[in-house]
Design a binder for these strands. Structure first.
Lengths: 320, 320
DNA sequence: CAATACCGGACAGATTCCGCCCGGATGAGG
DNA sequence: CCTCATCCGGGCGGAATCTGTCCGGTATTG
């Protein structure tokens, strides 16, 4: 930043983000000396912007609480980021229940942009193709999402109404440890009071969420992502499967996502335990991995692997 | 007025009063030279304020028509969509060169939200985890992106400066047919005048883009995504492979991305033609797909499939 | 009291700003 | 096409403002 004008207004932007800032903090962010920050604060005051200063321990600068904000001004880069973000969020299934939120947000943002920039962004949206797959959204209600987020942040229990996959509705008391967005779906994981265990719920199946009294502690080292993904892997599919893969744990972890099953390092390789709906699919997966392996169970899987081998031989010998 | 900052902002206030102003008029009001007024107008533009200029008789400066609209009013859903969109765009590698655009955009949007909603959105951002991988961004310059988008939209040729992967810079004349965002990278594909063929370029390797004279037509049925992906797939791997899959084109397209190879519907199924580096890997892929198939070529692939079948038999018969 | 954090004058050197000059581009109206 | 009015922006030398440093001082909290 070469111009003092821009730096003074950058200070204004930082302060407008809210909260308080020490002079040392601001100096670091603006890349100037502390004395210069103090001068800038005085400049803002000269311009009629109410910068409040507090001396002493825990002191710093902030804007006066009631200060009225100017209209939104986005740079070209920021506008493009917002619009592309809305496209990305829609494609990822991140959009929430009132399905047109991304479209209407795009329209509103566009209206406060200069006409030339809006037209260029229109051209961009018209001409760009994305290769990532579009997720079918399973959006939660916005209120459910925000209540759970606040409760997780402040470690406050909630009461939720939940409809399970086979349609049974009920109320649950939950200590929400964290939220996870995975493959187009929102999940909350935490301590389920009724089950006295950690449970994971899909947010699109949660009707209402209401904070309740109390506070909870998150268990040390708890990782919401791991919990949700391993919970997804523990679906009660028809078959339990255990296979010894003749490779390293590192290699296995690189090729097999946690959502597929549990990998355990053992002396002869890595044990993969999981549940699957169809054993022929499991046979195909194992063939596709490329490592040799030993089947612990079920025995039926051995038959499926044999059948796949026979089919491959047929293919290799067909034609000429 | 002693400070340039104050004078620049005084210009903004005059323009915000509405209507148009000549440079001479503004110079008189601000007590500066006309050249200085023109500099101030450029400063405001740098700060993201849309000052529009009109040359010639009856010309002058004014603010862009939409600039004086009331402040942006977003619903809760829309605000969440925008903020989550910015997060998604960052993770997908969609953000552009001036790296902090998503962060500063988030801050600006947050500033025009009610404090309560802003706090709830903060909680959401603090507590949510995403499982999708974070792409390392290879961002193009915003100007390059927007110029190419407009040129593609209006079917107008461009002149680009391009640095190839081994570092050779040069200028190219291009008819941009479309833009594609794939796996964290921006691509433009179109007719390369110098090569007299369709070529694909990565936008992060394009230094500048400038529209040139003329118009072009896009070939009928041209699909930018297919072109970019098949270009990526056309890497000179060691082996050419052709396999007849005993399934439908629709099923094949669902399981085999275009980046893998070309799918062609034929009377007995779907022909997959592609190039691969390792035939044993190809054998594994075919086994993993689960359909029966016939190998056209190479003959060596038949040996690899036989070897895989043998390995599967060994696995199925091992243990008990 | 100790530690932390804002305050602001003064000075020399650094950086940015400014008026002036001027050839050039643009656009409306005759 | 021409005329007139108006914006455009690089370059230069001098003027104005900015900046870091130094430092003694005030304010606030535990």
């Amino acid at each position: 930043m070469t111009r003092p004008t821009a730096r003074v207004l950058a200070l204004l932007e930082i302060l407008q983000a809210g909260g308080g800032f020490t002079v040392a903090d601001l100096a670091g962010r603006l890349g100037v000396d502390e004395r210069t920050v103090r001068r800038y604060a005085a400049h803002l005051a000269d311009l009629g912007i109410p910068v409040e200063a507090r001396r002493g321990r825990y002191g710093g600068y902030r804007l006066a609480p009631g200060y009225k904000l100017p209209p939104l001004m986005l740079t070209d880069e920021e506008a493009v980021a917002v619009v592309l973000g809305l496209v990305a969020a829609t494609r990822a299934g991140l959009v929430t229940a009132e399905g047109a939120a991304a479209e209407s947000a795009t329209a509103k943002i566009r209206r406060v942009l200069p006409a030339v920039l809006a037209r260029r962004i229109d051209s961009l949206l018209d001409t760009v193709d994305f290769t990532a797959p579009v997720r079918k959204p399973a959006p939660p209600g916005i209120e459910v999402l925000l209540v759970l987020a606040e409760a997780a942040r402040h470690q406050q229990p909630v009461s939720i109404t939940y409809t399970s996959w086979h349609g049974r509705a009920g109320e649950r008391q939950l200590d929400p440890y964290g939220l996870v967005f995975h493959a187009g779906r929102w999940y909350v994981t935490g301590h389920d009071h009724d089950r006295r265990a950690v449970r994971t719920f899909r947010l699109d199946r949660i009707g209402t969420a209401r904070p309740t009294q109390g506070r909870f502690d998150i268990p040390a080292g708890f990782d919401p992502t791991t919990q949700v993904l391993s919970g997804l892997a523990a679906v009660p599919y028809a078959h339990e499967m255990s296979v010894l893969l003749h490779t390293s744990l590192e290699q296995a972890q690189r090729r097999i996502p946690p959502s597929v099953g549990t990998l355990t390092e053992v002396p002869d390789g890595v044990r993969l335990t999981t549940r699957v709906e169809r054993l022929d699919g499991a046979a195909q997966m194992l063939a596709g991995l490329g490592w040799s392996f030993t089947i612990d169970r079920p025995d039926e899987l051995k038959n499926k692997v044999r059948a796949l081998a026979a089919r491959l031989l047929t293919a290799a010998n067909a034609g000429g």
